[in-house]
Design a protein around this nucleic acid. Structure first.
Length: 411
RNA sequence: GCGGAUAUCGUCAAGCGGUUAAGACCUCGGAUUGUGGUUCCGAUAUGCGUGGGUUCGAGUCCCACUAUCCGCCCCA
């Protein structure tokens, strides 16, 4: 036997029986985001490697070890591991800074990260996300969080937990980093290897370490005091308070989590996650925040921005099953040409219709009709002769014979 | 990159060293040449992830590899 070829590790087919749910997620995204004035943008699936190195940040795991990078014509190209960098690139390149702000965009599509697959994590996965450019006020943060919550609500998910935090601006963050380093210095040798690396590179990320021994260290009162301290400057604090007050007005429940640190380097001030208890250890459905310096870092004019992304596979696993649609009618006939004609007529009128292309026996066709549709349209010799069709309701077994042209109104 | 588990038909599985690898679902055919969903009968793995080994004998025991799942890390 010839060897069969399997899907690549960490990738999955989205099979016909699951597609209805995906189409629903996409349709509701369009509906909800449109109400707030967000327009869909579709950017390429691969970009210059440098875009992600500069955009996402070269101290991140994503850039360091998770990118699918390849060379072509002396260029280094990378399959997008996330879409914010691509959207920002497009924003700059297409002069969207000249549009009247805010510029509100949303996207959906596949992303690629070379990681060990597990529950809720694939190498090719899909994200839906929004980005808003040009508003530095906390209203933007609030609107974007509102949008995430309302999208989830529209999908039927009401009870997910929103966690928020403020990372402050680069200035106040430096001071905070210094304080964390100072208080952890005596414990340095007891930290795990990863944390020891983070200590220099990005001390903020020490805080969401999951190693038990590190957690114990962070739990110490004198260290907690520093972690819990309000390190952010007055301007950032005011921004953060305003975001929270808007969320209160919008009746969006949230939990403040000082340990919430996004793994991407571009965030400042507001960061947030939406989590579910039903996802196992990969429990974040949505992650996002403000990234006021990214546009400038990628060569554009200084433009404040805020956005988020959701993992569609994770989202999908929280959603109830969507049943695949039955046909409106199944034509039972041993005359393919008559069946073709009737089917086309009904399809032109918007109905979903099939008939047996293999011309099986009558009973087999009816059996198939029972599984595939709510109505059977019987087009036998008698009916064909008299220009009629028998319409059988397959649930109630009631059957009537009508003129062919009236069949449309009976199904 | 590091741990743990699993691998028998399209799917879910039984099998615990001894003839021909249960069963269920799905699919297909028949009972039924114009009336289905219930019922009955029949068909469908020369083969147990791959390669070695132990044994008179291996799906079953051992080793290696591969794949998948789960956890760490990281993230959506």
């Amino acid at each position: 036997m010839t060897k069969i070829i399997n899907v690549i590790k960490g990738t999955k087919d989205i099979l016909p029986q699951d597609v209805a749910s995906w189409q629903r997620m996409e349709k509701i995204a369009l509906e909800v985001f449109s109400k707030y004035g967000y327009k869909e943008i579709r950017t390429p699936i691969f970009e210059a490697t440098e875009l992600f190195a500069r955009g996402v940040g070269d101290t991140t795991d994503i850039v360091n070890k998770e990118m699918y990078t390849f060379e072509k014509s002396d260029r280094s190209l990378t399959l997008r591991p996330e879409n914010t960098a691509g959207v920002v690139r497009s924003f700059i390149e297409n002069g969207m800074a000249r549009l009247s702000p805010p510029v509100k965009l949303w996207y959906k599509g596949p992303m690629f990260r070379y990681e060990r697959p597990q529950a809720g994590r694939q190498r090719q996965f899909h994200q839906v996300g929004v980005e808003m450019f040009g508003v530095k006020q906390p209203t933007a943060d609030a609107e974007v969080i509102l949008l995430a919550v309302n999208y989830l609500k529209a999908l039927g998910l009401n009870d997910l937990e929103v966690e928020i935090n403020s990372l402050g601006c680069p200035k106040c963050r430096e001071a905070y980093k210094a304080k964390i380093k100072e208080v952890l210095k005596p414990e340095f040798d007891n930290l795990c290897e990863d944390c020891q690396n983070r200590y220099e590179k990005n001390p903020l990320r020490l805080l969401d370490c999951k190693v038990d021994s590190c957690k114990e260290i962070f739990a110490k009162p004198e260290i907690q005091k520093v972690i819990q301290s309000d390190f952010i400057c007055e301007e950032c604090a005011e921004h953060y308070r305003a975001v929270k007050s808007y969320l209160d007005v919008l009746r969006i429940k949230y939990v403040e989590n000082k340990l919430l640190v996004r793994g991407l380097d571009y965030y400042n001030r507001t960061v947030f996650e939406i989590k579910s208890n039903n996802l196992g250890s990969q429990n974040a459905v949505c992650g996002g925040g403000r990234y006021d310096s990214l546009v400038r870092n990628l060569g554009g004019d200084d433009t404040p921005a805020v956005g988020w992304a959701m993992g569609m596979e994770r989202l999908n696993s929280l959603l109830p099953l969507v049943e695949t649609q039955k046909l409106d009618a199944y034509i039972v006939s041993n005359s393919p040409s008559d069946a073709f004609a009737l089917a086309e007529e009904l399809r032109a009128a918007g109905k979903t219709v099939e008939f047996d292309l293999t011309n099986k026996k009558f009973t087999k066709q009816l059996e198939k009709a029972g599984k595939a549709a709510d109505f059977a349209l019987i087009l036998g010799e008698d009916e064909i002769k008299s220009g009629t069709v028998s319409v059988k309701n397959l649930k109630t077994s009631e059957q009537i014979t009508v003129k062919k042209c009236e069949a449309l109104n009976k199904i």
